[in-house]
Structure formats: C-alpha cells, structure tokens
Computed example of a mutant assay.
Amino acid sequence: MGMSGGTAGYTPAPQKKQRPAWMIGGATIVSFVALLYVIEAWDAVNHQELNADGIRPLESDGLWGIIWAPLLHANWEHLIANTGPALVLGFLVTLAGMARFIYATAMVWILGGFGTWLIGNIGAPPGVESVHIGASGLIFGWLTFLIVFGFFTRKAWQIIVGIVVLFIYGGVLLGALPGTFGVSWQGHLCGGLAGVFAAYLLSGPERKAREKRKTGTAQQLSY
C-alpha cells in the first residue's frame, strides 16, 4: 500500500460560526428569568418556604440571603412585575459586552445585597424583623448602570441607550426613596448605587484611553 505525501485531498474542518452578541445576551437573560420562574413554581408548591432565606438585616446568618434574595419572590404577582424590566434592562446591559454584564451583575448582586443587609431595618416598625427578597435590587442596578455608563465611556450609542432608558424607566427610581413598609426601598437604593459604581469601574478602559488622548494632545500643543 502506498502513501501519498500530497495534501490535495485534505479539507480543513469547518469553523463554527460564532453567534451574534445580542443572541448570546438574549439567551442569557431569558435563561435567568426562566430560572426565576422555576424557583417560584417550586416555592409556590412548598408554601413559599424559600422566602425565609432572603436578606435579614444585621443578622449574621442573614448574610446568606445576599446570595439567594434576587432569586426569590413573594408570589407570582411579585415575579411578574419584575419580569419585563429584568428582560429589557438585563438584555441592554449585555450589549456592553458579556464580561461587563457578568461583572456588573456580580457587583450589584453582592454590593447591593450587602448594603441592604446593613440598612434593611431602617423604617421597619419596632420589633418587626424584615426579610428582603426579589430581583428588583438587581433591576435597579442594571437601570442605573445603563443610565450612567454612556456618560463614563462617552460612546454615542451608549449615551442614547442611557437617555432612552431614563425616559422610559426613570420614574421607577422613585422606588429607591423611603416609602411604604413592605417595599424594599433599601434594596432598590443599594442596588442602584452599586449599579453606578459598577458603571464607573467597568468604564475604566474608555476613561483611561480618553486621558491618554488628552495627554497626547497636550504634549503636541506644548511644542
């Protein structure tokens, strides 16, 4: 049997076509919201027993609630109210890049949750233990991230997204003000602040590039 040393018969394996970023982002957000529905379905069958695992302010074992709180909802109405904003705002954040989406979400989730753990009892009636649950803190973080991110990066399309989001959802920000007991304005406030912090931190590459350009221009003008 002979062997041919030529490569005429060799065909390279076809490369997999990479999916568009918007498709990956959309699938990610839809999967996350679907998970919320699965958890709520299980919880509804089991008399909402998971809701006790939310954030219990200033209690050491209540710190675990930081991890679980965004996944839990008081009832179907609570989850349905959060579904639309979560799908829209979460998807828009993915357009800034999946890495940024993951980091921003993690920062809002952890920092916003920790802030809620610190101040969550403010405004509660004496002797009443509050438990904070729901994805709304995460939604507020995504909202404020989108509103300010473009102003940090100075990219036109991100500024436009921020303005449109502010116009459509800006009224929601009133939910971060102290109000009716039973609505976690503390979670909204802390999530929103964490979203601004995440936007500033994650816009670092654009801000540094802008400073370099400014420095370079200044040096050219000094000659």
Rank of each mutant, 00 (worst) to 15 (best):
W22A: 07
K17N: 02
N46K: 13
I39R: 07
S31V: 12
A13M: 06
D43Y: 06
L71C: 09
L36T: 08
G9T: 11
P20Y: 05
I55E: 01
R19C: 02
I67F: 13
H47L: 12
R56M: 08
I29A: 00
A52C: 11
L63Y: 06
A27R: 05
H47A: 13
W64E: 05
N46R: 13
A41K: 13
G65R: 03
A21D: 12
D53Q: 14
E49D: 11
S4R: 08
H47I: 11
G6Y: 07
V45Q: 15
H47F: 14
L71T: 03
A41L: 15
L71Q: 00
G26N: 08
L35R: 10
L58V: 07
H47W: 14
Q15R: 13
I24C: 01
A21R: 11
Q18G: 04
D53N: 13
E40I: 08
I67M: 10
P57T: 01
A8G: 10
G54H: 00
G9R: 11
G5P: 04
P57V: 01
E59T: 09
P12Y: 04
G65T: 03
P14H: 06
K16G: 00
M3D: 12
G6K: 08
A41E: 13
M23S: 11
W64R: 02
S60H: 10
G62P: 01
G65V: 00
W42A: 14
